[in-house]
Simulated scan of single mutants.
Amino acid sequence: MKNLMILLLTVSWLNVSGQDFEKDVYPTELGDLTFTFIGHGSFMMEWDGQVIHVDPSTREADYTTLPDADLILITHHHGDHCDPSAVAAVEKSGSTVLLTALAKESLGHGTVLPNDETATFKNFTITAIPAYNLVHKRDHGDPFHPKGTCNSYVIEGGGMRIFIGGDTENTPEMKALKDIDIAFLPMNLPYTMTPEMVADAARGFKPDVLYPYHYGSTDPAELVALLKDLDEVNIKVRKMP
C-alpha cells in the first residue's frame, strides 16, 4: 500500500481506567489497523480481529486493564521491553509470543525468532531484522545491543509493511528495507539513535509514515527539522518518551 495510505483518525484518545492513550487508525485490505501509543517502546495494534502487543511494560501502563493479546512481540531482553509482569497481564490461552533467545531466558517461554528469519501468524508474516549498535557502547567497550541478540520486526499483511525498530541504530539492514509504510524508530540516547541517525535511516528507506518513539529526553522537533526537506516521509510525533 506504499504511497496510498489515508489517515482516518489522528490523535484520537483511548481512555482505559483513567489511562489516556493516543490512537491512530489506518485502512488496510484486512480492515482498519489501529495503533494505541502506550509509551516508550510499548504500543498496541488491533488488526484483522487480532490484538498485538509490542514490548509491553508495566512502567508505561497498567496492562491488567488492556485487551488480552493474540500476539506479543518482544524486541529484546532489557526490562523496559521484556517485562514478565506485563506479558502475564495480557497473555491468554492461545497467545503467541515471538521474541529473542535472551528475552526467552528472561520471560521463560515463547517462540524464538532469530535475526533474518520469518514467522507466520494468522494473515501476517513477521520477519526479524538485526537490531544493534554501531556507535554507542558501554564504558567497558561492548555495544549496548550487540549484533545477533536483538530484533527489529517487519510485520506484513493487508497490503501494509510495518517496521518496528526496538533498540537499534541506523544499521545497513534497516536502511536497505523497501516499501515500508509505517516505521517506528527509537531515539533514546545513549542506547539507540541520535536524531541525525534517525534522519539518516529515514533517508535510506523512506517510510511513508515515521513515528519517532522510545525517545526519552530527546526532542522529536530536532528530527522534524532534519527531515523538513524529505517530503516522502510524514513524521508523526506521539507521546512515546
Rank of each mutant, 00 (worst) to 15 (best):
S85C: 11
A86Y: 00
V87F: 00
A89R: 06
V90A: 10
V90N: 03
E91T: 08
E91K: 13
E91G: 09
K92L: 07
S93Q: 11
S95K: 10
T96Y: 01
T96K: 01
V97P: 00
K104Q: 04
E105D: 14
E105V: 01
S106G: 06
L107M: 08
L107G: 00
H109R: 12
G110F: 00
G110V: 01
V112L: 05
V112M: 03
L113W: 02
D116P: 04
E117D: 12
T118V: 07
A119E: 04
T120G: 05
T120S: 13
T120V: 13
F121E: 04
N123T: 08
F124G: 02
F124Q: 08
I126M: 09
I126R: 04
I126L: 15
T127H: 11
I129E: 02
P130Y: 05
P130Q: 10
A131I: 06
N133I: 05
V135W: 13
V135Q: 14
K137N: 14
K137E: 15
D142N: 10
P143Y: 05
P143C: 07
P143A: 11
F144W: 15
H145P: 06
P146F: 12
K147D: 12
K147T: 08
K147E: 15
G148R: 06
G148V: 09
T149R: 10
N151T: 03
S152Y: 04
Y153A: 06
Y153R: 05
V154K: 00
E156K: 13
G157K: 02
G159D: 11
R161K: 10
F163P: 01
F163L: 11
I164H: 08
I164G: 09
G166M: 13
G166A: 14
D167S: 15
E169W: 01
P172F: 05
E173T: 07
E173F: 04
M174Y: 05
K175H: 05
L177Q: 09
D179L: 07
I180V: 15
I180C: 06
F184T: 08
L185F: 15
M187I: 10
M187L: 12
L189V: 06
Y191C: 06
Y191R: 08
T192Q: 03
M193Y: 00
M193T: 01
T194M: 07
T194K: 13
T194Y: 06
